[in-house]
Computed example of a mutant assay.
Amino acid sequence: MTESLLARALAEEATKKSGLIWVRGDGPARALWHVWHEGAAHVVGDGPGEQPLPAGLTEGAVAEVTVRSKDKGGRVVAWTATVRELAPGSEAWQAAAEELKGKRLNATDAETMTERWARECRLLRLEPHAATTELPDGSLSAVPLPTTATTRRPIPAALPRLLLGRKKRR
């Protein structure tokens, strides 16, 4: 009993402090930014300009959440969660959206962001119900997920010389 309470407390504290959590539904896990609010992790996504949510995160589904260390980036704790989709405009949705709004970086429409989320996105509450601090066997590495994101272009060959300066000849 005490070990279970300690694992839940570790899951909550680690999730609060971590900038990203890895969430897995039916398919591969995805890194998601989140906020811890009222005893659960909240994520927003699946809309234009927002993070894609993993497949299978539907009302009542079970998701596996892995929390990394903010300092070293290694796995600290994993916990299972029940997924709840919050209804746009509800009191719980409003409270979670306000918390998420404060954590959203680089938003182009900061003033109207929550209205856009209500129209076009899903806001999920991941309620923890079991936690484990046991480390898995193996590395758990996987092939990166496909994405539409691209790197701009290779840097010009002369750029390092321009930034670092040329060696002066004597």
Rank of each mutant, 00 (worst) to 15 (best):
E111A: 15
E111M: 07
A92C: 04
K72R: 14
K101H: 15
A87R: 10
T80Q: 14
T112E: 07
A95H: 08
A97E: 03
P136W: 05
E134A: 15
V143T: 14
A131G: 10
Q94M: 05
V83N: 06
A131Q: 02
R84G: 13
E127R: 12
Q94R: 15
A81E: 05
T132Y: 10
G89L: 01
N106W: 14
K72Q: 09
E127H: 06
A95C: 02
A97D: 02
T80C: 08
E127L: 12
W93R: 04
G74S: 09
K70F: 01
A97F: 03
S90M: 09
P128R: 11
V77M: 08
R116L: 00
L135K: 15
W93F: 06
S141V: 11
G74L: 05
A110F: 07
V76P: 09
A131H: 06
K103G: 00
A81M: 06
T108I: 13
L126K: 04
E91T: 11
L135P: 13
R122S: 14
A92T: 12
S69F: 11
T108F: 15
A130S: 14
P136C: 10
K70N: 04
R116E: 01
V77R: 07
R116C: 00
L145H: 04
A131I: 08
Q94D: 15
R75K: 13
T133S: 14
E98K: 08
A87D: 11
G102L: 02
E98V: 03
G74I: 01
L123S: 00
L126E: 10
E134R: 10
C121Q: 02
G138D: 15
W117P: 05
R119Y: 01
A92G: 11
L145M: 06
V83K: 05
K70Q: 09
N106H: 14
D137L: 09
E115K: 08
A110T: 07
E98S: 10
L124T: 04
E99A: 15
D109T: 12
Q94Y: 02
P88L: 07
C121Y: 00
G102Q: 06
P144V: 10
E134C: 04
A95W: 07
T112R: 10
T108H: 14
C121F: 02
A107H: 08
N106P: 02
W79L: 12
A97K: 03
T114E: 07
H129A: 08
T80Y: 13
P88T: 09
W117Y: 05
A142N: 13
R119A: 03
T112C: 01
S139W: 01
D137G: 12
K101C: 01
L145W: 10
G102F: 00
N106E: 12
A78Y: 00
A95E: 11
G73H: 09
R125Y: 14
R116M: 01
E115I: 00
D137K: 08
R75A: 13
